[in-house]
């Protein structure tokens, strides 16, 4: 062991492609299950949540406008970056959860494989979920899934890394942008993931990562008028989940309730909406209607 002083990392938020501290200036200590203090994490405020939503909104249209092939390559690039740093993430997961090192490495490897899986979905889900509709008239009629827009995710509390990746990958694969509230007590692997995303050609604002108190930040995301979807997967408290769902009803957000896993196609479907386009396919039908 050298006597060199270790350079500790400051864990910050990841918003709009940058790594800011909380505008509130607050932070909170993060410990391992055996009560060793690991680091301080920024404690996001309402303003941070709003800034993150603004960054996500700004990034959404361009991200959805990229080709599906490019979105796939960027997700695959994130997997490549993560593979190179798997050891670091395994260590952070092990410290956060108390898991054995090989188990922690297993969850990181699983997360890498999930990214690869969704990288392969970007240019396929639309043809699986959408299609041509044989309507009873001379019309070309076509349905395809489109991203909802901005999705706010409360990430799983006890599965701080794999759970996070599984929640955000299907949302961004389809062209949504996300604001993710990391595991409250185990946010460090999530915050490090921002570094992977920032070096994967993922445009700033597509994924925004916040750490802080679920009960404080989630209500602002649930009621924010510019959020289109709300993933309550990481809300353990049933009463809080019900409150957040009720708040989301104000602007009729699509809500994913806690406690239900799904196949990857179901998760892709969760954060998309179908758009159907009609066009006359014959001269006589051009005007349509009864008049």
């Amino acid at each position: 062991m050298s006597d060199r002083l270790r350079v500790n990392k400051t864990y910050k938020l990841y918003v709009g492609g940058k790594f800011p501290r909380s505008e509130s200036g607050r932070s909170y200590p993060v410990s391992s299950p055996d009560a060793t203090v690991l680091a301080n994490a920024a404690m996001a405020s309402r303003k941070d949540a709003r800034d993150a939503v603004a960054a996500a909104r700004k990034a959404q249209r361009p991200w959805a406008g990229q080709t599906a092939y490019l979105r796939g390559q960027i997700l695959y690039r994130a997997a490549e970056m993560l593979e190179g740093r798997a050891g670091q993430f395994a260590e952070e997961v092990a410290e956060a959860t108390g898991a054995e090192p090989h188990e922690a490495l297993g969850t990181v490897e699983a997360a890498i494989d999930r990214l690869v899986h969704y990288a392969g979905w970007t240019d396929k889900y639309a043809s699986v979920l959408g299609g041509a509709n044989p309507v009873a008239g001379p019309y070309f009629n076509h349905t395809k899934p489109e991203p909802l827009g901005v999705v706010a995710v409360v990430a799983p509390q006890d599965d701080p890394f794999l759970g996070l990746v599984e929640a955000l990958a299907p949302a961004i694969a389809t062209g949504n942008t996300v604001v993710v509230l990391a595991s409250e007590s185990k946010p460090l692997p999530a915050l490090s993931f921002g570094e992977v995303l920032a070096t994967s050609d993922l445009p700033g604002g597509v994924v925004n990562l916040l750490s802080g108190k679920v009960a404080e930040v989630a209500p602002h995301l649930a009621s924010h008028a510019d959020v289109n979807g709300l993933d309550l997967g990481g809300v353990g408290d049933a009463a809080l989940a019900a409150e957040l769902e009720a708040a989301a009803a104000g602007t009729l957000k699509v809500v994913r309730r806690p406690g239900r896993a799904g196949a990857s196609l179901d998760l892709l479907r969760q954060w998309t909406e179908y758009k159907t386009v009609w066009h006359p396919a014959g001269m006589a039908a051009a005007a349509g209607g009864a008049y």
């Binding site: 509709n133 044989p134 309507v135 009873a136 008239g137 019309y139 009629n141 349905t143 909802l148 289109n228 602007t251 009729l252 909406e273 179908y274 758009k275 159907t276 386009v277 009609w278 066009h279 006359p280 039908a285 051009a286 005007a287 349509g288 209607g289």
Partner: peptide
């Protein structure tokens, strides 16, 4: 919008999904 009618309007069919987004 959930449904876009191009050079037509108010067409409906059992085989064609109908519904909206946002509010």
């Amino acid at each position: 919008a959930g449904v876009v009618w191009a050079n037509t309007f108010n067409q409906f069919d059992a085989a064609s999904p109908f519904g909206g987004l946002k509010e």
